[in-house]
Design a protein around this nucleic acid. Structure first.
Length: 225
DNA sequence: CATGGGATTGACT
DNA sequence: GTCAATCCCATGC
């Protein structure tokens, strides 16, 4: 993937990354779930501005932002938007494609349990062998790379949902999932459905303001790598 | 310098 | 469903 792909609106990139392929150290998987984060909203690490921790987020697009979550898990993000804007797409789940034996070994699971290898942001970094050392590396030609979506698969149908596992800006529907995928960290709608949110429902005022002209619609999409 | 809170997972009830 | 593990870093004294 070229750097220009990541220089765009972070919501457009989060949507377009669905169906793309992440590779590292001989292992790879298709992205089936992402979340967008932007320095204009409080759930984003970059909301507090430039610090030693968030330096990578404000760097040039196409870098990997890897940080430690809960002191346990390394989480992989793709830095987006022009340099100086703190924005990134969190890669939340992959459908394993290659190197399944090695990924299973890293996860401590039998290779037959493919569904559990990469169905979560901490799981997929463990499976791929992505660590904090990869923070700041290039996703276009580094150890961890993101390639375009296989043409033969056609355009994926992407569903929107609220982001998972955060306590701030929970109203923003900035989670993107491949429709029908069995490799998601959690189902679309899931626990949030009880809260009354539906992808086709009107967005809250704050969400509309933040979404601006991104034009990401519920249901079908035509994102292109 | 001390403190508290996470963009989570897996084990256990 | 609940809950501990575990550690970096932003914040506040």
């Amino acid at each position: 993937m070229r750097q220009a792909f990541f220089r765009r609106d972070v919501l457009a990139v989060a949507q377009a990354l669905i169906g793309c392929v992440v590779s590292c150290d001989g292992c790879s998987g298709m992205i089936v779930e992402t979340e967008a984060y932007h320095d204009s909203e409080p759930a984003c690490h970059a909301y507090v501005g430039r610090t030693a921790r968030t330096q990578t987020l404000f760097g040039p697009p196409g870098l990997a932002y890897v940080y430690l979550s809960y002191g346990v898990h390394a989480l992989l993000n793709a830095v987006c938007e022009p340099e100086g804007v703190g924005a990134a797409v969190l890669i939340r789940a992959l459908e394993p494609l290659a190197g399944i034996e090695q990924m299973a070994a890293r996860r401590g699971l039998p290779a037959a349990r493919v569904r559990e290898l990469c169905s979560g942001p901490g799981k997929l970094t463990q499976a791929l062998g992505v660590g904090l050392d990869d923070n700041g590396s290039s996703l276009t030609d580094g150890r961890v790379v993101i390639r375009g979506r296989p043409r033969r698969l056609g355009d994926p149908v992407v569903q929107r949902d609220r982001r998972i596992g955060i306590t701030k800006a929970t109203e923003l529907p900035w989670r993107f999932c491949l429709e029908g995928s069995r490799y998601l960290s959690r189902p679309v709608g899931g626990a949030w459905a009880a809260g009354g949110y539906r992808p086709e429902a009107p967005l809250a005022d704050g969400a509309v303001a933040l979404l601006g002209g991104a034009g990401v619609g519920a249901g079908g999409t035509t994102g292109c790598c």
